[in-house]
Design a protein around this nucleic acid. Sequence first.
DNA 1: TTGATTTACGTAAACGTTTACTCTTTATCG
DNA 2: CGATAAAGAGTAAACGTTTACGTAAATCAA
Lengths: 336, 336
Amino acid sequence: MKPTIKDVAKRANVSIATVSRILNHTSVGYSAKTEKLVKGAVEELGYRPNAVARGLINNKTQTIGVLFPDVSGMLTSELLYGVEEVAHRLGHSVIFCNTSSSGKKTLDYLQLLSEKRVEGVIFGSSLLTEEYYNAITAMNVPTVLVSTKSQKHSLPYVKVDDKDAAYAATAYLIQKGHRRIAMLSGSPDDSVAGQPRIDGYKQALLDHGLNGEGSFVFTADGFSYEDGRALFTQLYDAGRDITAVFAASDEMAVGALSTAYQMNIRIPDELSIIGYDNLKISEMAIPPLTTVEQPLRDMGKKAAELLFEGMETGMLGKSIIMPHRIIERQSVKQLV
Amino acid sequence: MKPTIKDVAKRANVSIATVSRILNHTSVGYSAKTEKLVKGAVEELGYRPNAVARGLINNKTQTIGVLFPDVSGMLTSELLYGVEEVAHRLGHSVIFCNTSSSGKKTLDYLQLLSEKRVEGVIFGSSLLTEEYYNAITAMNVPTVLVSTKSQKHSLPYVKVDDKDAAYAATAYLIQKGHRRIAMLSGSPDDSVAGQPRIDGYKQALLDHGLNGEGSFVFTADGFSYEDGRALFTQLYDAGRDITAVFAASDEMAVGALSTAYQMNIRIPDELSIIGYDNLKISEMAIPPLTTVEQPLRDMGKKAAELLFEGMETGMLGKSIIMPHRIIERQSVKQLV
DNA sequence: TTGATTTACGTAAACGTTTACTCTTTATCG
DNA sequence: CGATAAAGAGTAAACGTTTACGTAAATCAA
């Protein structure tokens, strides 16, 4: 068995209270020589304080829970990276929960996190249902949303403004001389990453007097590479005469890119494509993909910082809208 | 404050022992009516058992630690996915540790996991130094390595045989008619993913009587996209007349692909490329990349299963060599 | 009916810490 | 030098569970 504080106390011939004081650097209450003694005993025994016992007495676990659908998505892993970074810096651990977009698993996990007495939770990039919200409030710990939001409930969130970002992407295309622009979108039922991006796209067209001329939205259930392929095929089957497409995710954009390649459509010469996210694959695509960046790691960091602030003060701060920006690479052509 | 077992006991007019027995489904020791009573009280109060207290008394945290360098790598996130899946199935949580390939952070984390009394650890895809090994043995909990191994120490591991897999990739190229084959490799100092793959490559050439003819190995420090770009440039600057390249990772292969594209070298018509890993990007590449698959999720799962088995029995099982296989896509051309 | 066994439940100790209260010893100051 | 304050260290309670043990009532066998 691992040595306990008692073993240390015994070996150093002091009381456990003294050991505790020394180990916790309580400013006062022990002399330099006992300190040496105790430190020595700790060393010899290889004593490590038991965080479980400590957690019980001071009601602090130094642990947060992070819930994401699908870890392996490059998007969520970037967010996770940011979260982990600040959590570790602040001496906390993160229990990582992959919900697989399953309601049951999510609720399971929320329950589990509640029993494990995590001090905060970060809920990422999926819709916050009524059920989830109830489970979260029942836990009674600070919670922040990242890359998602809830219109009904007032949990703070960290995300970019999807409508603005989509607007920017579309406006960029227009500024490059494009007039007939299609959009490859996720589901319009998705009130956070779906409809808002469509709205931004349409608004940009409208504001530039292009409403009648070209508003072609193709929607899929998700934002995957496969969705991108399918939508792009649909687009061409529909025989739309367009010069540019705005894809609502980099994965979709790459799907479009691949499909275009197979159709012998040259990018950007014959068709321009702009993506959304700025994942690593956008840089690795052929040609390198112009896209609108979401600062994912920073979002993870900010979300964690917001959470820790809330954990300390007991009051959650305000939501944060992160800046987006266009990353110009080589998939968009300037029309004359 | 959250209700405790005492609150439940009070409300149901029973002792805390009874509540505990009922909640833990201890087969005997209570009547149906008290059970209803207690369940009712639990419901009304929204009581959730405190896993911290429980952990203290029975010395079980139902938690494992997982250490990876760089989460956001697509490789590690796949492994993590597999690990999480079985951990959750078995009622355990995973504390996720991103070591950022930093020795200090790794040791920090090992310490932390030790204090948090995790019941097992999975150490992934980076070299197990002497220091790490010592820290791990000091924790005295089952540990399994995944996608790495240690020749000095006898920790069980789950991985594919790098030499075999590299041999297979090279042999595939040869079988397709290639004779002059270069390799883009990680560092030869990397005794798990570096030298063994080089050895496999060389062995394949040798076994097919090609030793004199063409053994061109270019090495970088890592396995990244950028490394792939740099190495490919080097390869062409060296003026080697080759028909195929074996890249030691998909990221490198994609780097080579991009660079080739910019140099106007057509893949696979003018040059064939085979990768290693079978990450999602290989499927998304243009052209889709032929590669040798590592079953990453399965490796994560197997590693976790091995670990849990070890946690139950107290005896860690034997290492597992996972099967690799060639995924044929479109980056390799059959030479006549 | 009576003694033995089972069932239902309560009491209290234990897990490994932290910390409020003590009590001693030492230092400080007039 | 004596009174008083400060410093060093110990005792024990508390955190929220689980569980060994005890006890009373209920059931059972004879």
